[in-house]
Structures are given as structure tokens and as C-alpha cells.
Amino acid sequence: IRCIGVSNRDFVEGMSGGTWVDVVLEHGGCVTVMAQDKPTVDIELVTTTVSNMAEVRSYCYEASISDMASDSRCPTQGEAYLDKQSDTQYVCKRTLVDRGWGNGCGLFGKGSLVTCAKFTCSKKMTGKSIQPENLEYRIMLSVHGSQHSGMIVNDTGYETDENRAKVEVTPNSPRAEATLGGFGSLGLDCEPRTGLDFSDLYYLTMNNKHWLVHKEWFHDIPLPWHAGADTGTPHWNNKEALVEFKDAHAKRQTVVVLGSQEGAVHTALAGALEAEMDGAKGKLFSGHLKCRLKMDKLRLKGVSYSLCTAAFTFTKVPAETLHGTVTVEVQYAGTDGPCKIPVQMAVDMQTLTPVGRLITANPVITESTENSKMMLELDPPFGDSYIVIGVGDKKITHHWHRSGSTIGKAFEATVRGAKRMAVLGDTAWDFGSVGGVFNSLGKGIHQIFGAAFKSLFGGMSWFSQILIGTLLVWLGLNTKNGSISLTCLALGGVMIFLSTAVSA
């Protein structure tokens, strides 16, 4: 259960009878995928790494000078000259100064003066180019299975845990398959586009800190620079940016070097996208990844198990997540596992009318040892309800109150669905055939309105939902006002479609 501690969480529900669903994975976010007769899966884009970055340009932001020398000439005696002028490691300046009897010249006039100092770069920052084909995306998957609280967001041991898996995709191999043991396998067909235009970005490294910066900004930095990788004795261009020549006297000129420019660069980098280094690879934390999940090989585990009949206890007080759902960790005293956990939410304890829904599909106890633990997640209705676990006299209950409203949740879900469709863009549509167009249209309606429909009408039977949709269509056909007619027709059509397409 990876997503319960992530604030940016998206719930995606598969269409009834569908074998695939489109998701948008982004750094700092987590996606929970639910479908009829399929286990619930949490998917998170953990890291995006980039390798084989080529150094484009380096800037010196802290330097020192040494070996200063000057040469001067009297008027009419030609130009002052130093051998160091031809050495690229030196920074030199030529000027004219007033000369006369007082400073060793027989004539009054302008004399030539040249001053040089050896330039040494102490600290530099480097910009590297990123090729999209060198990106690698690491995705962690977790099935809502027989897990306890100690396994949440624990990325170790996934090789031997059938509840978890790690997959890596690249532009050259965008397809992967996550093996989930008894739950089958989940196929991923990803489109490795981060949403960032790397043709316009460089990877900047300064003092063990890293950013993504725009090329134009990078090339306009007014500091000494050299092109390409460091060859040991780089040729620094624009050395004068960190060196200041003071007022010249008759035979000498003082040279000083400016202080470190790291603070000024940090100020200019305010708002830039931060990154990290992992050995020789860069780690990015921006952008998104679009994936199509193929769920035809994914299956529920323990459908044929019998119900657990022994007593359950709450190991922890049920807690609310950031998303309005409830996490419950229970301990089973029996030894008759594997068995299914009898769990439901009810409005009252007399009729036990089921409300809400299970995020953890078909929760089971897989071990036959005593005191096995299991964590599950529920989506309670707004208002008061009861969490009921167990059967008969051994069942345990917990009162729950959820604040908020169904309308607010439906609106929030619609906005999130619209954002998801905007990110998917043209990849969500198939114009290759008439059937493809209608299929894409259905998927689009489901992406945007599916979660809201589930919130508003999830407790009704599909037949009642179709009746309401048919009534809206009838009202649309018999209303003389054009805008009201079109609105009723659209709402009725969407409702009829979703009542037959969205899983219960």
C-alpha cells in the first residue's frame, strides 16, 4: 500500500470489461488503480535517471590570480610587451599612462603600459546536455494484498515479495511487465516523455548541487567559461569578468580578483528545477510519464477462499488518510488461513446495510499462523458509518465519521480527471477507425466523469442509474429551450454510458 502517505494521489477506475487503462505517473504523486474483478494496485514513479550526459560548457565562479607582471614604455618608444601576453592562462590589459620627467621619461606624453596576471579557477559549475534516449524511469508497484503497516513504502525485498514489484522503462524499451506472483502480471506500455523539453534544458552542477536550467539563461551567464570537458589546462574565455584592473600608474597597475560568485548564482537559480546525482547518473524529480496498463493477466487472489471465522482485533486505531479513506490494521487469532476477511461498512448496526467501498479488493489472510496481521483500506461514505470486521458474535466494529460532501468530492474528481486527460493529450485517442474513435470517446468520458459518477451514484443499482439517464434524455427531447435540451441530452447520455461502463 504505497499511496496512503502521498498527498498527491489519483484514483483511476477501469471500465467494466476493459483490459487496459491509461494513467499519468508523476514525481511526488501516486496512482491507485481499481477495476472490477482485479486486485487494487498502487503505482508510483520513484526516480527518473539520466546517463551519458555530455559537458557543454563550464563557468568559473571563484578564481585566484598570481605571478603579476607589468612592462611600460616612454612616449615614442613603441608598445610595451610581455611574453605572458601569448599565454592563455594569463589575463592581460594594455593601456596608456601619462609619462614625463617625473617618472623617468625625457618627453612628456602618453606611454604604453601592459599588465598580466595568471588566472586560476578555484571553483566552477558545469552544464551538461541531456539526450531523451538516455532517460530511465523506475516504477514501483504494490498490490493491496496481505501486507501490514511495516511494509508500507518499503522498497527492500521486492524481489521475493509477490505484493510488490519494480520495473524500469526507457525510450528504447518502453514496454515492461511486472510479475506479482499469485496476482498474475501487469503489463506497462509507457510513452517516455517527461513533459520537459530537454532540447531547451541543461543539467547544471555547482558545488555538489544540481538544477535543470534553460539553455539561453545558461549561455548568457557573465562569467569566465570554457567549452567542452575539462582537459586539465582549460582555456578560459572572458577571464576579465572576475578580474579587475585598478587605476594605472606610470610603471605598474594593481590587479585584484573578485570574490566568489556562488551567492549571486544561487539567487539567479531561484525557482529552477532541482535535481540530484546518483553516482555518474543524474536524478530528476520533475515531469511525468504516461503509461497504458494492460490488466488482462491480472487476477484476484483468494476468490475461492472461505470466510475467516475466528476473532479479529484492531492492532491500531483506524486512521484517516490524506485522501479521506480509512486504513485499518487487524490481527487474526485463527489458524484456518488462508481465508477471506469479512469486512464491510454499514450505516447502522441493526440492518448492516453496506455503504462505501473497499479500496483493498478481496482482502485475505494468507498465513495459517496465529496472530497474522493484515492492513486494508476503505472508502467510507460522508457522515457517520460503522466499520464491521468478522462474522457472528466475534465481529468487531468501529464508529467512523467522514466530513465533507459527495458533491465536493465529485467536483474534485472531475477536475482531476480533466487534468489527466489534458496530460494524456492525443495519445488517449485513436482515429484509425470508426470503432477506435468511439472507443476513445468512451475512454475520455470515463477518465473525466467516472470518479464523479461513482461518488454521486455508486450506491444505486445499474438499472436505477439507466432509468435516471433515460429520464434526462426524455426531458431533453421534450424541452423547447435549446440549451436546457442539449444539457439534459448530454447528461442523460453520459449517465447511461457510465452506468453500463463503470464497474460497481
Rank of each mutant, 00 (worst) to 15 (best):
L424M: 14
G17Y: 05
P171M: 11
N237V: 00
E262K: 13
N103V: 03
A280F: 00
W101H: 07
Q77C: 06
V31A: 11
I130G: 04
H27L: 14
F108Q: 06
T427V: 14
G100I: 05
L456D: 10
T327V: 01
S199V: 04
D37Q: 03
G5F: 05
T88R: 09
M206T: 12
N154L: 02
C105R: 09
L180A: 06
H288P: 00
H219V: 11
E159S: 01
G458R: 08
M495Y: 07
F218G: 01
Q350H: 13
R57E: 07
A63G: 13
N207E: 14
Q131D: 03
G458V: 00
T313Q: 13
K246W: 07
G492A: 15
R94I: 04
E13M: 09
V169M: 12
A117E: 03
N154W: 08
T32Q: 04
E159V: 01
S173E: 05
E412Q: 14
I152L: 04
S72H: 08
L212N: 07
S368T: 07
G102D: 09
S173G: 04
H288R: 13
T32R: 01
I359F: 07
W236K: 05
L472N: 06
S503V: 03
L471R: 07
D189Q: 08
G390S: 01
N8Y: 08
E191V: 06
S7T: 13
D197W: 11
V143P: 01
T366G: 00
M151A: 11
V415D: 07
A250T: 11
G469N: 02
Y158M: 02
L107E: 06
K419E: 11
D220R: 03
A333K: 02
A165I: 07
E168D: 15
G404S: 06
V303G: 01
S499G: 03
T160Q: 00
V31I: 12
L491D: 13
S485T: 15
T170G: 03
H323I: 05
G469Q: 06
R138N: 04
C92V: 04
Q253I: 04
Y202S: 01
Y202N: 10
G282H: 10
L441M: 14
E244K: 10
I1E: 04
V347G: 06
D10L: 00
L135Y: 04
S66L: 12
S122K: 01
S372H: 07
H446Q: 10
D155I: 11
G100F: 07
F245P: 03
V167M: 09
E367S: 14
C92K: 10
S405K: 06
K419Q: 14
Y203Q: 10
L424G: 01
G390R: 10
F11R: 01
R252F: 05
P380A: 02
H249R: 10
Y202P: 02
S403I: 15
S385W: 13
Y202R: 01
D220A: 06
V23H: 04
W400G: 10
V265S: 10
G29W: 12
P75K: 07
I359D: 07
G425L: 01
V303E: 02
K294S: 04
H249K: 09
G476L: 01
F11C: 11
K395S: 11
V114M: 09
C92P: 01
Q85M: 15
G425S: 02
R420Q: 09
P39C: 09
C74F: 05
V343Y: 01
G356T: 02
V330C: 04
Y386D: 04
L498D: 12
M15P: 00
K419M: 09
T360E: 05
E276V: 14
T335S: 13
N481C: 08
K124M: 13
H446K: 09
M68N: 00
W211N: 09
C105Q: 06
R9V: 06
L475R: 01
V423F: 08
Q36R: 14
H235S: 02
R402A: 11
E216R: 02
R175S: 07
M495I: 14
S16E: 01
G390A: 05
W400M: 11
L223A: 08
P192N: 04
W217P: 03
T126E: 12
T479L: 08
A35E: 00
T95I: 09
M349E: 15
A311E: 06
I4S: 07
L477M: 14
A422N: 08
S185R: 03
S7R: 00
H219D: 02
H249L: 08
R292W: 01
N154K: 11
T120N: 13
S499Y: 10
H401C: 10
L96V: 14
V143K: 05
D197L: 15
V97P: 03
C190W: 11
T115L: 02
D71M: 12
G182E: 03
G383F: 06
D379R: 00
E244F: 08
S503C: 07
K409E: 09
E55Y: 08
S70F: 07
E44T: 02
E133I: 08
S499I: 07
E162F: 04
I43S: 01
K38S: 01
C308S: 12
L107P: 14
N207Y: 07
V473G: 02
A280W: 11
C30Q: 08
E412H: 12
E377R: 00
K166W: 14
E240H: 14
L307C: 03
A178D: 05
T313M: 13
D200R: 00
G102E: 10
L293H: 02
T267F: 09
P318G: 02
L201Y: 14
P354S: 10
V6C: 04
S122R: 12
G111N: 04
G157P: 14
L298I: 14
V21E: 02
I407H: 05
G282C: 15
V502C: 05
S173H: 05
A264S: 12
R402I: 06
L477I: 14
T231S: 15
V91R: 00
K454N: 07
I387W: 07
S455T: 14
S86A: 14
I65A: 02
G282Q: 03
V24R: 03
